[in-house]
Amino acid sequence: MTKFLFKRILTGIVIIIGVSFLQYALLRLLPSDFIEKQFMGSFELSPEKIAELKNLYGLNNGIVTGFALWFKGVLKGDFGISFTDGRKVAEIIGEKLPFSFFLSLSALLAELAFAFALAVSSINKKSYKSKFAEVLTLLCMCLPTFFIGSVMQLLLFSGLKILPLSGALNAKNYILGNKASRIFDVILHLLMPVFVLIIAGFGRYFKSIKSNLNTVMKERYILNARLKGLSYKETIKKHALKNSITPVLTAIGGNLPSLFSGAMITETLFSLPGLGLLSYERLMSCDIPFVMAFNLLITTMTVLGSILSDILYAVFNPQVRF
């Protein structure tokens, strides 16, 4: 078991380094880079100035040297300084990351809970309720996220005027309000984005949970559990749920990187101060340190996610352990 983990971690590190190098090479090989984007439009620059700027930003080194320098910095913990505003990349990401993580995590948990509840209520039934649930899932899966978001905004903000439009905190509350009212305000602001994320995201979990549940309910041990006297609800709780959770685990592992990268579209739509919006702004301008750090984060999370999936799979399915 530990040997297996060790091998996976090793391969993971290789993958991370490989992907980072690929990214760096790609960024450096781009015909246009940061300097041209930021400065060429508004300023007239002489070639010497350009060379000076390039030196300043470290864009004069060869690709391999540049990557080695960056990697050395990373090992020490220094992720470089962002081209855009000169702040440390680690600081910038560290500011916005908790918010995105919190948003995505709560949305994920709510999606899973909702998908589970819906799947359990439509096991093996051909009633109108389960057909309705299927149609609902179809609709939710087939609409683009931003469309759902915009409609929500229209309905709940412009129409019914219950929830605030965008941002995470009301300025007045931030300055004048006390902690409790600030927390309440943040929650109120986050309700719509989380809701949008849930609607857009529960569909794929519902599908896989439902098909797994249907398979599991036909197994003999469910029948045996009922013959021992357990009620329908109890058998589902104690036996069916545990055995049909495997696709969810794989999905969680696969979704780990997106927990950290933030829901770009939703954050753009609702102007939430998260990592998604930030990266949208920075990536367009080829801000190399930021892009490298961001990609490093996501690649690491992807690798960790798949390892996590494997571990969870072994926890829930003892046959794998032996």
Binding site: E219, R220, Y221, N224, A225, K242, N243, N317, P318
Partner: peptide, 11 residues
């Protein structure tokens, strides 16, 4: 019940 092989929850 009849079949013992599948009668238990494998997990």
């Amino acid at each position: 019940m009849q079949e013992p092989m599948n009668a238990f929850n494998p997990t």
